[in-house]
Design a protein around this nucleic acid. Structure first.
Lengths: 114, 114
DNA sequence: TTGACATATTCCTTTATAGGAATATATTAT
DNA sequence: ATAATATATTCCTATAAAGGAATATGTCAA
């Protein structure tokens, strides 16, 4: 059996970094495909394809306006991911990992300051 | 170019439902491979393979104890995912979607109470 | 030492990419 | 009607995956 399609759910769709980048730049705005193309600096078919995947899982929705298609993010589709991850938060808070990260941060700040 | 390997990062690793299930049942505990096998009801090679992927991205770590291997979750590896998703929270809160969900919750509670 | 137990690895098959290049479709402007 | 613009789709290739079955590896017990 192959891996689940990227069009299957949000978990699979956002596994691809370019799709996360699209979501990041499209959040809170509405954008035409070409505006995404310009923002990202990728070729148009690539943008259309990734938008297509995001659309299939409902992470973006599209509205036709003349010859343009205006896309926007459906943030609600990210909620299940948030809910899945958040149940483990207590296990990374107050942990040795946390302490470790904290110490690393302190250290890197000190290094930066020198 | 093919999709990024599931061993590439946490985003890819948790795109697979079985791996999320393993994390869910392994969180906060330590378990032997066979204990995971029993818990999940899958065959042993399958469990070992998925644990292997999770290990490669650091989502679990493993400790040898005699002929057993004891696995545990490294929850800290989920933090980047949480941090990525949480930046969009404001866009699903206070939205019509939110209102809709709220109304649905109310309704299902009322139905339950009957 | 030899067998039993615990776990990992290999081989195979099917499926699904993601990107590039080329092309098709739809809509507006002249 | 025709050209130009905006976007989607198709075809191709290389890569990677997940599961099943079989087998290898490592460790303990008698």
């Amino acid at each position: 059996m192959a891996r689940a399609p990227t069009t299957f759910d949000s978990f699979n769709a956002i596994a691809e970094p370019r799709r996360r980048a699209i979501i990041e730049s499209l959040i809170g705005k509405e954008m035409t495909v070409n505006q995404v193309v310009e923002t990202m600096g990728w070729n148009q078919p690539m943008v259309s394809k990734h938008l297509g995947v995001l659309k299939q899982v409902g992470l973006v929705s599209e509205r036709k306006q003349g010859r343009y298609r205006v896309y926007k993010v459906n943030a609600a589709q990210l909620k299940p991911i948030q809910e899945w991850v958040i149940q483990f938060e207590q296990y990374w808070m107050n942990s040795l990992d946390h302490l470790e990260n904290y110490l690393n941060e302190i250290q890197s700040i000190e290094v930066k300051d020198e």
